[in-house]
Design a protein around this nucleic acid. Sequence first.
RNA 1: GGGGAGGUGCCCGAGCGGUUAAAGGGAACGGGCUGUAAACCCGUUAGCCGUAGUGCUUUCGAAGGUUCGAAUCCUUCUCUCCCCA
Length: 402
Amino acid sequence: MDIEEELRIIKRNVVDILPGLEELRKRLQEARQQARPLKIKYGADPTAPDIHLGHTITLSKLREFQDLGHIVQFIIGDFTAMIGDPSGRNEVRKPLSEESIRKNASTYQEQIFKILDKKRTELHFNSEWFGKMSLKDTLKMASYYTVARVLERAEFKERFKKKQEISLLEFIYPLLQGYDSVMLGNDIEIGGTDQTFNLLVGRDLQRDYGKKEQIILTLPLLVGTDGIRKMSKSYGNYIGITELPLEIYGKTMSIPDELIFPYMELLTSISDEKINNMKKDVRDEKMNPKDAKAFLANEIVKRYHGISEAAKAGNEFDKIFKKRELPSEIPSRKYEKEKVWIIDVLVNEGLAKNKTEANRLISQGAVELDGKTITSPDFDILMDSEHVLKVGKRRFLKIKGE
RNA sequence: GGGGAGGUGCCCGAGCGGUUAAAGGGAACGGGCUGUAAACCCGUUAGCCGUAGUGCUUUCGAAGGUUCGAAUCCUUCUCUCCCCA
């Protein structure tokens, strides 16, 4: 493949290349001459084991590198997680136990290979080297960086100005992440735009340790389904790649309209041309945004569950929300009693979190039995035949007697 | 070490002796409408009582106290932030 073509693929969706495109081109050429693959580093934090669409932007980029013949160094920050990861919030995150880290890490491994090519992936844990590091080595590492440099980091600058707490550990954190690069000797490191500073530290440290400096690729952060904050499990605005097809489809259908095209660009392999055409059609009102969204939802489900599951999810969604019919599969539950109080059913089956909520749902007209709205909580379901209970628009349950 | 500010419901944040289960916003849930679980509008959001009341219990960092009555006042403890050294 032509090197320019390779660069074109690499550049797609990338926000920034540091120090610049030229360096990247040079590194590619160099690797070709030496007939070696490039090593691409990506660090993951084992605190949130469920991979969601936000992660897939970077993972897909890694996969592209693999398909171009390069090697991915996937590093799990098990050591740093053990001492607590302070990144992000204004609050220091609790350190994780060794056990939960191990569990999270293995979940990670299962999930990343839905996207990455196992044969072209090296897996590393940073406890491999940090576990053995002496205080002397640590201090040496710390000596390479200055307080002023660390304060350059946008987030620190902000918090420093607002006089919020910054722990010493947080200060060192970027160094730890950077030291991973020193140990791995990677050519490129990729991460979200929020990681820019940390990635740059890696570059600096590699130089300080006399290694070749990594080239940095930053990728956009994905806005979550709420349309406001970045996608994150802790904000509950995420779509996980291991979720059920209908869940993924439905959640995608619930994103604000403005997110339709950004999602298409970042999360699917739909061609730019096709995306632009759709954009235009929606703008000219030739296409209903809902249909563009349905197309997107289908693409996403297809990617993680295959084409037939995607079609099924789409039909199912229309059935429930457009035609207001019953879904084709409804969980069912047996009761041995002759009759059961509606409130008890709602609570027992997890359709309401307590009796107060069950009462509220009924008074709001959210509960239907066999298509009829239940108006009073003073109601028993007779277990003479099978009944279909519907709560809200999307929760269904079949109940029957023995 | 000295001084100051503060910890309120899922989150943010008002309240600073009764009318406070606690304003407002966010989020979630429900309803309406629709093009969808978009947007918009409306409602609900401590728990309990077979449904109902001017009902009962629990909640404002923790524990005590003052008072007919406290998230609001006092004491002690605890945690956080800021300033000075």
